[in-house]
């Protein structure tokens, strides 16, 4: 019995780290799941605010947007070029990370206002909270989308 459990323990020690191994493709895939999610959520919010979607879901979308934005920056920390991320992301990390953090903060603020004061008020913050343009112009490679 002892020998079996020792063997089991040894193999686990060898195998477990391999289970957790993240390769480059995983990194790119994960951050793309996040960014694409953001794209969809931004789109639906835009639909609702222009009267082409169900207003009752406004707050839900603001919440999910804020939550997703909160994990976006970290997904770029691993310096793995690929997908549509230009090398500038890491070359200008100070600026990139500052912008991502602003995005996370402002969308969190928007969701908070939505929860506490109603989506009317939150909608006022929407343009500020979603500065996709400024960042994408610099850091996203249009040809690789």
């Amino acid at each position: 019995m002892k020998r079996v459990s020792k063997a089991v323990a040894l193999s686990l020690m060898v195998l477990l780290p391999m289970v957790g191994h993240t390769d480059d493709k995983d990194v790119v895939d994960y951050r793309q799941h996040i960014m694409k999610s953001l794209e969809h959520q931004t789109a639906v919010l835009g639909q609702i605010l222009s009267g082409a979607g169900p207003a009752e879901n406004t707050l839900a979308h603001m919440e999910t947007l804020a939550l997703t934005a909160s994990v976006a920056l970290k997904s770029f920390e691993a310096k793995v070029p690929g997908g549509a991320a230009k090398p500038e992301v890491w070359k200008d990390w100070a600026d990139f990370s500052k912008r991502m953090k602003e995005f996370a903060d402002k969308s969190a603020e928007m969701a908070k206002v939505g929860r506490e004061q109603g989506v009317d008020q939150a909608a006022m913050l929407v343009i500020e909270a979603l500065p996709c343009k400024g960042c994408h112009d610099v850091y996203r490679d249009e040809k690789k989308l």
Partner: peptide
């Protein structure tokens, strides 16, 4: 699809943020 869809949408409707 490659160049325009991202901003102008698959249904050609664009979007408030795109």
């Amino acid at each position: 699809k490659d160049r325009c869809e991202k901003c102008h949408g698959a249904s050609g409707r664009g979007g408030m943020f795109s």
